[in-house]
Amino acid sequence: MTGQEAAHEPKHTRDLTRRKVVAAGAGVVVAAGVGGTFATGAFAGEETTAAEGKTAGASGEACYKLTSETTEGPYYIDADKLRRDVTEDQEGIPLTLRLKVIDSETCKPLANAAVDIWHCNALGVYSGYEAMGSGDGGGGGGGGGTPPSGTPTGTPTGAPPDGGGGGGHQEPTDDERYLRGTWRTDKRGLVEFRTVFPGWYQGRCVHIHTKVHVNGTWTDAGYEGGTTVHTGQLFFDEESVLASAEVEPYSTNTTTRTTLDEDTIYPGNGTQGGLLKLQYRKNAMAKGVVAGLTMGVDPMG
């Protein structure tokens, strides 16, 4: 949504905030276990991605640079469900998202960090904002071209990135929460989600939003308190997006697609800017994709 995403809050103003993530069922933290292996369907037992393969300071490697901050966007909803499988009933290419969170100064993994993800479905629609249609400009799920209903509420939280735009946070229009979730990193700084490959909507390339919070408290009810140390977006290369566009229901999305190079939010700096490393079988993408990335953050905020 060119110029439509809300600017992210400047890092120096992200002080300790009160937040609570509602658990998806009583006792979910205890039942799921800390850092337990998450089943990944067809990808169970497959070799780990590059995001998982590096250990802190391994082989004398230089530490990762700080992962680029990008706009939060207008569709963030706090108090999302504490879960790793965020798919619910959404159709699309299965996506296993594996993220590693490290201290950008020391390269040490950050354990017990809370990682949020949220993104649109295969037809460009965000849960909680179905009345907005396909993102912020594409009309209903198939991109029929009708403008979004409703108007922005609130105010922007800071200056937009270069080439970005204004626009404030949108108030949710419904109680749906598919393709949203929060989970904790294990002792290696790893967290894994099961979702579907995102679609696209007017003015934006294909992407996933993410936040990282530290120093909060995990309870049976969820995650409380903490400091937000990263707000960013995760991006997909053009080859993978073109391949997804051949698969239903993506192939029914008639919204004009913005490429990665055309996008005004992607900082253009590869993995440091959130460009995911992908694994999938060519000519069989519909069976699933594994995406991975190491995110360097400043735990001091």
Rank of each mutant, 00 (worst) to 15 (best):
P249V: 01
G203T: 11
G163T: 02
L123I: 01
A24M: 11
I265A: 01
G92F: 01
G199C: 07
G232I: 00
K287A: 14
Q90R: 15
K100W: 13
A42K: 12
P160L: 06
E176M: 08
A114T: 02
H209D: 13
G142Y: 03
F43Q: 09
D103H: 13
E72D: 10
T255P: 01
Y280D: 05
D136Q: 10
G189Y: 06
G25A: 13
T185K: 04
A31R: 13
D136W: 01
M285D: 05
H12S: 14
G45N: 15
V115F: 14
M285L: 15
V297L: 06
K11I: 07
P10C: 01
F235H: 02
A32G: 01
L293H: 01
L95S: 14
G53K: 13
E72F: 01
E91V: 01
T258Y: 06
T146C: 02
K277C: 07
D261M: 06
G222I: 02
G140W: 06
K211A: 06
E171L: 10
G141K: 12
F236A: 00
D220E: 15
Y75W: 13
D175G: 06
T146S: 15
Y76L: 14
Y129G: 07
D162G: 04
L82A: 11
P74W: 08
E72N: 03
V28T: 12
R98L: 06
A56K: 11
L275R: 00
V29E: 12
T96A: 04
P160T: 05
A32V: 02
D15T: 11
W183M: 10
E61G: 12
E176F: 04
S244T: 08
V29M: 10
D85M: 07
E47Y: 05
D174E: 09
G53M: 06
K187P: 02
T55Y: 09
G124H: 03
T55I: 00
E239D: 13
G181D: 10
T259Q: 03
L260A: 00
K65N: 11
K81V: 03
G73T: 08
G57E: 09
E52R: 07
G133D: 03
R257D: 04
T96S: 08
S251P: 07
L190Q: 11
G181H: 11
L82D: 12
D175A: 15
Y201D: 04
Y76Q: 09
G33S: 01
R18D: 10
F43M: 10
V115L: 13
L275S: 00
T210F: 14
L95N: 10
C107H: 14
G33D: 00
V196C: 01
G133W: 08
C120V: 14
W118A: 05
E69G: 04
D174K: 05
R184G: 05
V86D: 02
D89N: 13
G158P: 03
L190F: 14
T255R: 11
A51F: 12
S240A: 15
T151R: 09
E246R: 10
T256V: 14
P161W: 07
G137F: 03
T70I: 05
A291P: 08
G268Y: 10
R83H: 05
E52A: 14
A50M: 12
